[in-house]
């Protein structure tokens, strides 16, 4: 009889183990969407693998990319410079190659793949050229990681190009500006936690900069340093040359000029 008892206990313990597993998540449609997006991504990747070389689109040069019409399909090979965000299986990244830079907005990307997109990683991106408030970007994109090649851009000094028509030719590149005067620092929400709007001037002319919180986070050195700046400080900055209704560089590094 004790054996039966032992058996009963074992069965009940088994049930306990089952009951102790992770609770079912709330029926969150976002999670559902996440799963869907993952499936879509996987399907896309499968499709890419199934393609024969003859079917693959021609990789564009930066010049060809810039000449392409808006809303047309584009294919580029480029190198990740920084990651801005990953959200519901979509990644937004700054990329650049030796010819120019490409901002890739919300390309299909699993969380695992996102982890692999470290600065310097070469990727082949297929998407559509688009423009949002002046920012030229690639949207609705898929990508594949290319092996055995790394490129990390050095910032290009664009100080002399500020306020000129030439600046836009370097859109999305990693650039630097030196000897800038701090005019104002304004938190988007009035307090730390979100973007910081930074107004810097050169030779008496003001320019809009931004610390994009999704790019830097709130704990980064750049985020905290900007928070300590005061009007009148002279600074050197590095930034991705983002565009929003005009040049709106996204600051990645900042230091007080000596």
């Amino acid at each position: 009889m004790k054996k039966i008892f032992a058996l009963a206990l074992v069965i009940m313990l088994a049930f306990l183990m089952v009951a102790c597993t992770e609770p079912a998540p709330v029926d969150d449609n976002n999670q559902v969407e996440d799963q869907q997006n993952q499936e879509v991504t996987q399907d896309d990747q499968t499709t890419e693998q199934d393609q024969t070389p003859a079917e693959e689109e021609k990789v564009m040069t930066y010049e060809e990319y810039m000449a392409a019409e808006l809303d047309s399909p584009v294919v580029v090979e480029t190198f990740v410079q920084a990651k801005q965000s990953w959200w519901q299986d979509k990644a937004t990244v700054y990329t650049q190659n030796s010819d120019g830079a490409y901002f890739i907005y919300e390309m299909a990307c699993s969380e695992e793949d996102y982890a692999e997109l470290v600065p310097g990683t070469k990727i082949k991106v297929k998407g559509f050229k688009s423009e949002w408030s002046g920012e030229i970007e690639i949207v609705d994109a898929t990508f594949e990681i290319m092996e055995n090649e790394i490129f990390v851009a050095n910032p290009m000094d664009a100080t002399a190009l500020l306020g000129t028509d030439e600046l836009i030719a370097h859109q999305n590149k990693l650039v630097s500006f030196s000897g800038m005067t701090v005019e104002s620092i304004e938190y988007k929400n009035g307090e730390p936690g979100d973007d910081i709007y930074v107004t810097l001037s050169k030779d008496g002319v003001s320019y809009n900069f931004c610390v994009e919180v999704y790019l830097t986070g709130t704990e980064s050195e750049v985020y905290n340093t900007v928070g300590t700046l005061e009007a009148g400080n002279t600074v050197n900055v590095e930034a991705f040359l983002y565009w929003y209704e005009g040049a709106n560089p996204h600051i990645t590094a900042i230091e007080l000029a000596e």
Partner: peptide, 9 residues
Amino acid sequence: LVLAGCHGA
């Protein structure tokens, strides 16, 4: 415990 465990979340 079994009954409590069945509630999960």
